[in-house]
Design a binder for these strands. Structure first.
Lengths: 98, 98
DNA sequence: GATGAATAGAAATTCAAC
DNA sequence: GTTGAATTTCTATTCATC
């Protein structure tokens, strides 16, 4: 399912990068061969429950994983299980467990 | 300091209500006699490090206190100390400690 | 430094198409 | 059910003003 692969890629991207806007995310996804628009990313972000927070480093807004709840963790874990995950994505699980 | 009083009122309002937009917050602040515009609220939100998250009840976005960090907690506690705080606002501290 | 009016910029939704 | 183009809605910033 392409949508799940894309969403797990989004989790990876926001974990490893400072993503300031949805357009940033679109660019990075396109660089990874995901042909997608801002409208879809907006929906993905809502489904993943991602939040925009202030980055300590830059003082600017960036996307972040939501504060862990059973709902969001289950969603993340499901996506990671469903997709072919690189070692980078495994690191996300570690981040979640912090 | 009017700004701090307003910001602690904001903490109270988002803790006790589902605030979906900055305009919502402006309305509620005006109802509480804070004469303020969206531009100022945008700045307050950034300074307080507030985030927009999905509400479990409504499935819609609402403003929320940030995940606790020493920085944000200190900021909240400072504001609560500085201002004349109602019993309602004391409840916010309890929420933060959860 | 704090703020508002206006504007630019970003994000959510609509509406159609698939 | 998923998506994109266009649009609406919402938010951040600019540029004055105090």
């Amino acid at each position: 399912m392409a949508r799940n692969v894309r969403q797990s890629k989004i989790l990876e991207l926001i974990s490893l990068n400072e993503i300031e806007t949805q357009e940033d995310l679109v660019s990075k996804l396109r660089a990874s061969k995901f042909d997608v628009t801002q409208a879809t990313i907006s929906r993905d972000i809502k489904e993943l429950g991602l939040i925009k927070i202030l980055s300590n480093e830059s003082g600017r807004y960036k996307y972040s994983l939501a504060e862990a709840t059973s709902h969001t963790s289950n969603k993340y874990i499901y996506l990671l299980k469903e997709s072919v995950i690189s070692i980078k994505t495994v690191k996300i699980v570690i981040v979640l467990a912090k």
